[in-house]
Design a protein around this nucleic acid. Structure first.
Lengths: 335, 335
DNA sequence: GTGAAAGCGCTAACAA
DNA sequence: TTGTTAGCGCTTTCAC
């Protein structure tokens, strides 16, 4: 194994000079820097990660905790993970993957053993059990999602409340007066997952504000459930002309169900969704939608973490990304 | 920070004794072991990962390279990742997440810096560019998937050839004489991804062996493509009574398309699939299917790696997991 | 069954 | 602008 002393000897400098040339933590003359770079290339030198971590007390590794539970759309989780890894690499960091299953012990373990410098935690519940630990840990963390009480934490997410509002405003602008929200599976609300509730709040508030009749319907992630919800909605609200869907797997089945019940989309019924663009684009009728900006959220989480690791003082506690609605074929003015 | 010398002092032993008590690499009297454990608990000691890695030249971290490309079913990737992490934890290892995008440099980097002890690489193509590197690396690796030339490598995967055969045998046993395979998107074959081709081989071989008329149809992962393929199949093979689907996102749209064309499933047309159980179970008509055993593959990959890290000599080069077909409502004897 | 001590390869004072 | 050197916290010989 080639080590830093080998490079130093080969380049005719001291090990510390090589180290500083690598880290840029002190000025090096152009000439020696060049010689060092040549030696590194020639010898194929790679600094030993463990030795580095030990000497600098920085592992350059971030932990990413991913959720596994039901009612969570897996591709979205994967998109977050990929954007976190990509962003971390731009800052010369790697990403250690932890499953939610490991729980608090896992967080404590990777933090206390100095395996990671910082943590990103996804799928935050309103009263998440891990919050006290994350506050107490000696390593910085960023939460993707918002708990009920975010004080003292750093959180980032799509502004789901604004997303719910924006969907309603869009339908209201088209003249719709009776609308429904088809939401996440019931267990997601029971767990008090923040984002699902916030969509409901925004949806209801905007509907009330606009004098629109509205109702909310949790829905299991199965076609049969979609059909039941569609039937129920039409039974309870015969004058329904607008629907907001916040439940990826059910979007297409729901449209199918409405059409099977004799409603054309968007002729009789306008549909908007909060879902990834790929889902909204690949339905029979492309759906007007608000995407979860996974790339921005993942990248943002890493940037926040880097600022905290850099000793930044003024890192915002809450970062809410504004929703952007993409109009597609599934919405039109009320008939 | 509590270190091993603190524990040693507190327990009245030497640091090496604490180390050996932790690793079990030499016998410790029951009495001192107890005292050491008590001290560890009392002081809240956690060994420093970097120091450990430096002294032992073992980081206890595995790299997992996940694919990002189109035509790959994301939830399956996530299942692999989770099962790898879970299995690794059982062996006291953690998992570093690498994206395919990092390519060969990424593999070299984590290996050469001793960040990881070993690697698991998913989505292996027949002529994968990374193979020479993986053979040359000084760290062991396991491939999930099979290249054209697996000699000198350790590979594990579902036996996709046998899976293709098993689907055909099932249909043949039900009396079907004209069948079609709806396969992965064309780019998957163009890339020469092994598993897709192997399904085709098994499908065709078994059909020929049974004197069954068969044809193969790649299909984009979109409902519109499913409709086109369904129409094409019926046009070319009016006597068609059996279909094998190897393309998760298209399964439900395909059944819809056949029914829209006047064929009842399974009354007029029997359908089998190679896909996750969740996909097969949640279609309108639950589909007879062969699941990709993600948990077994992920766990198996980790076990193989652990054996290699343990210096095992006789690790099999090829591990092919036998397919298991679950009969559901979508297949029945030929009308 | 246990201890002493020499590193593992790197970083970052401190010194020049 | 560069060099010297003392650790970082642990594992593992070697010795008893």
């Amino acid at each position: 194994m080639v080590k830093i002393t080998d490079v130093a000897r080969h380049a005719g400098v001291s090990p510390s000079t090589v180290s500083y040339a690598l880290s840029g933590k002190r000025p090096i003359s152009e000439e020696t820097r060049q010689r060092i770079e040549d030696s590194i290339r020639e010898l194929g030198y790679r600094p030993h990660a463990g030795a580095r971590a030990l000497a600098s007390s920085r592992s350059n590794v971030l932990a990413l905790v991913v959720p596994l539970r039901t009612g969570i759309h897996v591709p979205v989780v994967m998109q977050f993970a990929v954007s976190v890894v990509t962003a971390a690499r731009r800052h010369d960091h790697d990403v250690l993957l932890l499953t939610q299953e490991e729980g608090e012990d896992g967080l404590r373990r990777v933090a206390d053993t100095a395996l990671v410098d910082a943590l990103i935690v996804m799928d935050i519940q309103l009263h998440d059990r891990r919050l006290p630990l994350l506050r107490a840990l000696d390593r910085p963390s960023v939460l993707i999602g918002f708990p009920a009480e975010p004080a003292g934490l750093t959180c980032i997410d799509l502004d789901f409340r604004a997303a719910g509002e924006l969907c309603v405003e869009h339908l209201a602008g088209l003249g719709h007066r009776v609308i429904g929200l088809v939401g996440s599976p019931p267990e997601v609300y029971v767990r008090e997952t923040g984002f699902a509730q916030r969509v409901v709040q925004g949806f209801t508030a905007a509907a009330d504000r606009n004098g629109i009749a509205s109702s909310v319907h949790p829905c299991e992630a199965a076609p049969a459930a979609a059909r039941r919800v569609a039937e129920q909605l039409l039974r309870e609200r015969p004058a329904l002309t607008g629907v907001v869907v916040h439940n990826e797997p059910v979007l297409e089945p729901l449209i199918d169900a409405f059409e099977a019940l004799g409603l054309r989309v968007p002729g009789d019924l306008s549909v908007t969704a909060i879902c990834p663009d790929e889902v909204a684009e690949q339905t029979r009728v492309p759906v007007t939608s608000i995407a979860i900006p996974t790339a921005e959220v993942g990248t943002g989480a890493v940037e926040l973490l880097m600022r905290k690791l850099g000793g930044a003082t003024a890192v915002p506690e809450a970062t809410l990304l504004s929703p952007r609605l993409t109009v597609r074929a599934s919405t039109m003015p009320r008939p």
